[in-house]
Nucleic acid binder design. Structure first.
Length: 380
DNA sequence: TAGGCCATCTGGTCCT
DNA sequence: AGGACCAGATGGCCTA
């Protein structure tokens, strides 16, 4: 059977054919053995595409067409792996049938090899945080996420080895935070103020995944509530974070930031969180932290260098890499622009709330640790 | 509909 | 010598 593609004037553009000799008949690589297809139609499609060639020579035609199309291009890239010329010459004695059968076997092996590569990628995806079976990560995204995750774990271990969890710089800002705490605790009437104080229910520090998903948002309850007396709001799953529309905060993060200039380095504004789609949010942050930051926000090495310890400080257990990236960016904003600590902290909470809500992650323990970093205190 | 992603085929190159 | 590896080419599918 031959599959041909034809142009509008019915001239064959490409034809595929697969020839199998008796030695390979009956052997199907994994993808064709009926396993792993999402539906019969999928299998039919693939089987059709790889149908058997019995007596057609389109296999050769395809090769010829490929060669001619390659030659038509100007100076195709030649591989230069090794200067040693060890290429095998085609033995004219070998029959065309034998050559075809070898090619077919080679194709089968190559297909199997690529399947095993894909399986390995799937396994890698499964061990990444928040990357389940139905994850839509592409191959390159999977690799980047894995790279980030390894970086996170490595840095976390290094920090633990060094006992480097104290942040003296941030301690200097504690009074401002305490003022915010005091204000919010006495008058938690506005959302912004409630955001300024992280409510941490320690009982969920070590909660399992199901418990995480079922917990209410930090924003859905009053900060004065006692964890023990708290009643689980039934509307917890309907929580939708609202963008902090505080004028000063908006101005700081989305308008004035365009004008910031440090030496020869211009800082681009942070993306508008309220207008950012979750897909863009995810996609933008799936990259290496330094590359992402360098490409999107900072050109100077000095600032990039200052980001690294900030990111390192934000490496938290169970925290998705993309969230820690974002936290790192905000931490750097605090350090670089001396942005109001209270406002920045509330922004942290908003970012985490938004992300955790979309990802069905309970954010309290994350927020607690972020807050402890910002305040220079360590949660017990 | 353009572009991204993917599976597959293919021949050259490298390795055992 | 044969298999593994690699990269180019191609077409299908999906999504913004």
């Amino acid at each position: 059977m031959v599959i041909e593609s034809r142009s509008s004037n019915n001239i064959p553009i490409m034809s595929y054919g697969i020839l199998r000799d008796e030695s390979t008949s009956g052997y199907f690589p994994p993808i064709f053995n009926g396993n792993g297809f999402s539906s019969d139609s999928d299998q039919e499609k693939i089987s059709f595409r790889n149908a058997w060639l019995t007596e057609d020579v389109s296999f050769v035609n395809a090769s010829i067409k490929r060669e001619s199309s390659r030659d038509a291009q100007e100076t195709p890239k030649k591989r230069q792996r090794c200067s040693k010329a060890r290429g095998k010459r085609r033995d004219p004695e070998i029959s065309q049938t034998l050559r075809k059968s070898r090619r077919t076997m080679a194709n089968d092996r190559e297909r199997t090899r690529m399947h095993s590569l894909n399986d390995a990628l799937e396994n890698l995806k499964r061990v990444l945080p928040n990357c389940g079976e139905d994850s839509k990560l592409t191959k390159i995204e999977t690799l980047r996420m894995a790279s980030n995750y390894i970086f996170v774990l490595t840095e976390t271990l290094n920090m633990m080895d060094r006992g480097d969890f104290d942040h003296t710089d941030e301690n200097k800002k504690a009074p401002e935070m305490n003022a915010s705490l005091s204000l919010s605790a006495t008058n938690p009437s506005t959302r912004s103020e409630r955001l300024g104080v992280p409510y941490v229910d320690q009982s969920y520090e070590c909660c399992d995944e199901n418990a995480v998903k079922s917990q209410p948002s930090i924003l859905s309850r009053s900060v004065t509530e006692s964890p023990k007396l708290r009643v689980m709001p039934q509307s917890a799953t309907k929580f939708e974070p609202m963008s902090p529309t505080d004028a000063l905060e908006t101005r700081l993060f989305h308008e004035l930031s365009q004008c910031y200039k440090t030496g020869n380095t211009y800082i681009k504004p942070l993306p508008s969180l309220s207008n950012m789609s979750i897909s863009a949010f995810n996609r933008d942050l799936i990259t290496t932290p330094t590359d992402y930051f360098r490409d999107n926000y900072v050109c100077s090495e000095a600032l990039t260098d200052s980001l690294l310890p900030a990111l390192t400080s934000a490496k938290l257990r169970m925290l998705p890499v993309k969230v820690s990236c974002y936290i790192g960016i905000y931490i750097l904003y605090v350090k670089t622009f001396k942005i109001s600590f209270t406002l920045c902290a509330s922004k942290f909470v908003y970012v985490l709330e938004l992300f955790c809500h979309r990802q069905h992650i309970y954010p309290n323990h994350v927020i607690a640790k972020v807050w402890s970093f910002l305040s220079g205190k360590r949660t017990s």
